[in-house]
Design a protein around this nucleic acid. Structure first.
Lengths: 148, 148
DNA sequence: CCTCACGTTGACGTAAACGTAAACTTTGCC
DNA sequence: GGCAAAGTTTACGTTTACGTCAACGTGAGG
């Protein structure tokens, strides 16, 4: 069984990207859908691949990097040297992602701090209706002095 | 006490970025170091701000978005409408970061799967030295069929 | 046969985030 | 005071990831 196939238009709607983007990914060698004449026919496998590509993009990988990773997946027949190279690449990517995860957690924590301050100021405003704002300066930056 | 200050060169080395990048951030209004004549003098506060900027960049924020966030931090004197707007913006950013964190975790999990497969193939190779590779095709894509 | 929606291939345009080179001025220090 | 190192502005160049026409093919249906 050959499973479902998709037209380019279907995929754009399903994935929330433009046809131009799909053709671009093909130009860059990230996908290679079949053709019926000149028309592109995407398989379920192509679609799954696109899901990976889009996720890669969202986490900040360049298209070329994503291509590298996909190529590594695809070349499962490599010699031992190839495999070791692939292993190294995968380990590097994972390490990069872990660093990035920490950055994200830190950023979120920072923003949550800012959010708390804003909310406290808002509730304060609601408590007593003073309009002569008592300049509370949100500092941010990990609670740095408001001015040096 | 005015705390330490930094020359542009010092910051490039400390933060691992170029002077061009620092000037660019200034052009875009993300930082505004003092001047002694024409020479830029960065304060500790500027440096902390840069740390935030770089982290923002690493997690995929555009410079303009980072500027928005920093501006929100800076304008702690806003009226109640401003504050509510800021609150909304912060909440949005946090939500975006949480989505991104999930993407990262998914990506890492996917890569770890690939890594395991590679390692198993490598140990297999070490076990019995067969060179007529028995085509094990790493599929990836969440264990999809190797070919439709 | 004609229209229309959907598809195709060029090929130039663009926005973001700097790189890079040119042409100077300023500063540190021997 | 002289010279290298470090600083400045101005401005065009580059890379990435598509956007945006233009010009054309193709199958379904009225």
């Amino acid at each position: 069984m050959t499973g479902r196939t998709f037209s380019i238009r279907e995929l754009t709607k399903a994935l929330g990207i433009t046809a131009r983007t799909l053709r671009h990914y093909e130009d860059e060698g990230l996908i290679a859908p079949e053709r019926r004449g000149a028309t592109r026919i995407y398989s379920g496998r192509d679609r799954a691949r696109l899901t990976l590509i889009l996720r890669g993009r969202r986490v900040g990988f360049a298209l070329a990097e994503i291509k590298d990773i996909l190529d590594l997946y695809d070349s499962g027949d490599g010699g031992i040297t190839q495999l070791q190279h692939a292993r190294k690449k995968f380990a590097e990517r994972i390490a990069a992602l872990e660093r990035q995860k920490k950055d994200i957690e830190d950023s979120a924590a920072e923003l949550r701090l800012g959010l708390e301050m804003i909310e406290s100021k808002l509730s304060e405003r609601h408590a007593h209706e003073r309009s002569a704002t008592n300049r509370v300066q949100i500092t941010g930056y990990g609670l740095m002095p408001a001015e040096d």
